[in-house]
């Protein structure tokens, strides 16, 4: 076992997969320079073509990744900031997501698109997006939201070997978080949620960095005699609905915690799914904790309180129990 950061886990996954399969390559702005820390040593080991610095042209280089994938390569695209994906959204939606279907299975796009979500850090509206829910609305994409170093490595390795376009949203608030990683190789399957904290009174489904906050909340609630079950879906597409529904059948209460915006968000989708399929097990109305439908302000005095933290989660869980 090694105790490494989320970002080191990402770097390990990339290095292992590039060494295993020579069709895997990394591309994006400044990737050879290892600006953020996920590509250290890769340039020396694999050379400038497989650690390919691109011009600043997200829409163009995303199309390049898709074309390369069509002819047998397996690109990993590093967008750094998730907000920059908007420039590439035509390619992600019209080409990556649709090519396999539209061309009747003649081709497929085995490409990974990594995007880091920085928020709660004073970088204001245009750099603070938590935008995974937008891409959940696009059939043909897979959407991955790791919440810790172990998951980040195992899910990224699975994504690289997947034959379809996979979007991985890395929570920038977790990049420095450390965790235990086994020495032996492992992969984590898509569509399999992780029960991070077992409980029987209330189900808390949380996404990315909200998972850690929810575990803290569950630990605090335990001291009060409230048994909360925390579920990390790990992948939003495909979504492990069975694990969530089984938990709700046991607890009768659902709280969904999401740092994304509220309207048409991941939390709303999970809540709707449980309302449709688990309604008769519910003992209280479903509750969502999300960021408000508001742009992200610059000043920390303004941004504070936008994202549900452990105290807010514990409070919401208590309210659910009292319903």
């Amino acid at each position: 076992m090694a105790n490494i950061t989320f970002l080191e886990a990402v770097a390990q996954a990339q290095r292992e997969e590039m060494a295993r399969d020579e069709s895997v390559f990394l591309m994006g702005e400044d990737v050879s320079g290892n600006v953020y820390g996920s590509s250290g040593g890769l340039l020396d080991e694999f050379g400038p073509q497989r650690v390919l610095d691109t011009p600043i042209c997200e829409s163009g280089f995303t199309g390049v990744a898709i074309g390369a994938a069509m002819v047998g390569m397996r690109p990993i695209v590093d967008y750094t900031i998730a907000s920059f994906m908007y420039l590439a959204t035509d390619q992600l939606v019209s080409m990556a997501a649709k090519s396999s279907y539209m061309y009747g299975g003649q081709t497929h796009i085995p490409a990974v698109f990594r995007a880091a979500m920085f928020y709660n850090g004073g970088i204001a509206a245009q750099h603070s997006d938590r935008n995974y829910s937008m891409y959940m609305n696009v059939p043909g994409l897979k959407v991955v939201v790791p919440s810790n170093p172990y998951d980040a490595k195992g899910l990224l390795k699975t994504a690289i070997r997947d034959e379809d376009p996979v979007l991985i949203f890395e929570d920038g608030n977790l990049w420095g978080q450390k965790g235990e990683i086994p020495d032996e190789e492992y992969l984590l399957p898509f569509g399999q949620a992780n029960i991070c904290h077992a409980g029987s009174d209330v189900t808390i489904v949380a996404i990315a960095a909200r998972v850690g906050e929810s575990i803290k909340a569950a630990e605090a609630l335990a001291k009060e005699g409230i048994s909360a079950e925390v579920i990390d879906p790990r992948t939003l597409v495909p979504l492990d609905t069975a694990t969530i529904l089984e938990s709700v059948a046991k607890t009768g209460r659902l709280l969904v915690v999401d740092q994304g915006h509220r309207t048409c968000g991941a939390a709303g989708e999970i809540a709707a799914m449980v309302a449709e399929k688990g309604f008769w097990n519910l003992q209280a109305p479903i509750k969502r904790l999300t960021a408000p439908d508001m742009q992200i302000p610059f000043s920390s005095a303004l941004e504070r309180g936008f994202y549900p933290d452990a105290a807010m989660i514990a409070l919401a869980a208590r309210e659910l129990i009292e319903e």
Binding site: V64, I66, G67, M70, V71, S94, M95, M102, Y103
Partner: peptide, 21 residues
């Protein structure tokens, strides 16, 4: 390698196929 009906979107895809080659 297919025809894209979003005007211009095939251009980078063609460049990507060439990169693959």
């Amino acid at each position: 390698l297919g025809e894209s009906s979003i005007v211009g979107s095939g251009l980078p895809v063609a460049v990507g196929a060439a990169l693959g080659s």
